[in-house]
């Protein structure tokens, strides 16, 4: 199994973090992983994207040009990377930030108003976790348990409340992904 993922959005939205969590969880599962960010002078507000690969085999190219999964947090990301998604692949996007969506019919499209959902859970910081949950709900790229272990190791002592909200967010995303 090899899954290639692109996460894209505005700089500062945390798309690099989404990729990082996926790679980290994949590593926890004993898989080969790579995480390759776009980098440049825009620290905030510019475009940002990351290529993540999770594979049973050693990873040759860390560059993803035809992703199995695209997580898009703004419309330009769909416009740019949407056409590259492998047929049958998955697009996860935030309806609030991507008003036009995507008109492809040969891919699986899962969308949700991530901002509102995050607000309902009680922290904008969990928006990314909903997106990751949507990926987990639809694909087998990583397991929920790996995310839970990972987040627990970071947050258990530092911020148990945020840990709780993160886990709720992932589960919420998984429901959406499964639907």
């Amino acid at each position: 199994m090899k899954k290639e993922i692109i996460c894209a959005g505005f700089g500062g939205q945390g798309v690099l973090t989404i990729g990082r969590f996926i790679a980290q969880a994949g590593m926890r599962e004993g898989k080969h992983v790579s995480w390759l960010p776009s980098y440049g002078p825009e620290m905030r507000g510019g475009t940002a994207n990351v290529s993540a690969v999770v594979s049973d085999q050693p990873i040759a190219s860390p560059i993803v040009s035809t992703p199995d999964i695209l997580v898009a947090l703004n419309q330009p990301s769909i416009d740019k990377f949407g056409p590259q998604i492998r047929p049958g692949g998955v697009l996860v996007y935030d309806t609030g930030m991507c008003p036009k969506g995507c008109d492809r019919t040969d891919i699986q499209i899962i969308s949700a108003p991530l901002t509102e959902l995050a607000q309902e859970i009680g922290s904008m910081r969990v928006l990314n976790m909903i997106a990751i949950g949507m990926v987990i709900g639809r694909t087998n790229v990583i397991k929920y348990e790996s995310m839970e272990e990972d987040l627990t190791s970071y947050l258990k002592d530092r911020d148990p409340d945020l840990l709780e909200k993160n886990l709720i967010a992932i589960k919420k995303g998984m429901e959406l992904g499964k639907a």
Partner: peptide, 10 residues
């Protein structure tokens, strides 16, 4: 190169 510097791997 920049790719290797910026890239994360286990």
């Amino acid at each position: 190169d920049g790719m290797l510097g910026q890239m994360m791997e286990p």
